[in-house]
């Protein structure tokens, strides 16, 4: 008798579980790119993130129309810039007579890099972002001019290299020599800047999923960067967005490439550990 009841209970529990799972699947759209690459857009927050249980890609906060742009590479306007970067990859530039391909062969040799950036660079003795790695190659190996952080070739190359890691989980290291930059970035995240006295956390940790006027607040994850932003009709970097957000608090902002923003990128990047690299994602 007892074992029968237990078995019934177990099946009821199983049915309930199935019921709630299918309800979840209906409520939450899933990001599958080109009907092939399954992306993790929601997952358990990394252990170091004490104030959130779940982390969510910015994709989950966007409208169906914006989401659709990212579901097929033919619809993703960011891919035009990736194509441009493919040409650049093969193009010799600088006094050393080299192209990216001379040393690295195809861009697929860069697989996995974006998932770990920014990261500590032992030789340089500091945390490096994608832009810093690219310019190091240009200046020292190619003997070519460095690209500006906001320049189109830099944005494009960042997107091409990032794309090689698409679908891989973000895995930004926060300990070891990177720890002091990480702590600095964390402090910035919780600092209430400007005349409006707003921190990143005010909007993106305490109020994500709420509307602020017409804007649907996301968690401010940067796993999709560089992003194709519809508003700007171009690729943009995380630093560009950081700058815009801090400006909007009526503060004196920091510049792209500043040590402050490198630290903030490291910290914010690590808040997305476990989400898929989505670059180049599409946002509004």
């Amino acid at each position: 008798m007892r074992s029968i009841s237990l078995r019934i209970l177990a099946s009821v529990a199983a049915l309930t579980a199935i019921g709630s799972l299918s309800a979840m699947a209906e409520d939450l759209p899933e990001l599958v790119i080109n009907e092939d690459i399954e992306m993790v857009t929601r997952t358990k927050a990394p252990a170091h993130l004490e104030n959130l249980d779940e982390i969510r890609s910015g994709w989950t906060f966007r409208t169906k129309e914006t989401q659709a742009f990212q579901m097929d590479d033919f619809d993703n306007p960011g891919m035009i810039f990736v194509d441009q970067a493919l040409d650049t990859w093969e193009t010799v530039d600088g006094a050393a007579g080299k192209s990216c391909a001379t040393c690295h062969e195809g861009p697929e040799s860069m697989t996995g890099l974006r998932a770990t950036l920014p990261k500590w660079n032992e030789d340089a003795g500091e945390v490096w972002t994608m832009e810093m790695y690219i310019n190091d190659c240009r200046e020292n190996r190619m003997q070519a001019d460095a690209w500006g952080w906001k320049s189109q070739p830099m944005l494009n190359m960042n997107a091409l290299i990032s794309l090689q890691s698409r679908g891989m989980p973000v895995d930004v290291k926060i300990d070891g020599p990177a720890q002091s930059a990480w702590e600095k970035g964390k402090e910035m995240y919780y600092t209430r800047y400007g005349q409006l006295e707003l921190s990143c956390a005010n909007c993106h940790e305490q109020n994500y999923d709420n509307y602020i006027r017409a804007d649907h607040l996301s968690q401010g994850q940067i796993n999709g960067f560089p992003v194709y932003r519809l508003k700007q009709a171009n690729l943009i970097t995380a630093h560009n967005r950081f700058k815009g957000c801090i400006r909007d608090t009526r503060a004196e902002t920091f510049s792209e490439g500043s040590p402050e923003f490198v630290a903030l990128e490291l910290y914010v990047g690590s808040r997305g550990n476990g989400l898929s690299v989505e670059a180049p994602s599409v946002r509004n």
């Binding site: 600092t191 209430r192 800047y193 400007g194 005349q195 409006l196 006295e197 707003l198 005010n202 305490q206 109020n207 700058k243 801090i246 400006r247 909007d248 608090t249 009526r250 503060a251 004196e252 902002t253």
Partner: peptide, 24 residues
């Protein structure tokens, strides 16, 4: 409170010149 202080003139961190992103 997250609400901005509407009648206050100082005590800010990196106060800017309105929405320009430049220093006050």
């Amino acid at each position: 409170s997250m609400m901005p202080s509407f009648y206050k003139v100082d005590g800010y961190i990196r106060p800017g010149n309105a929405f320009t992103g430049k220093a006050a």
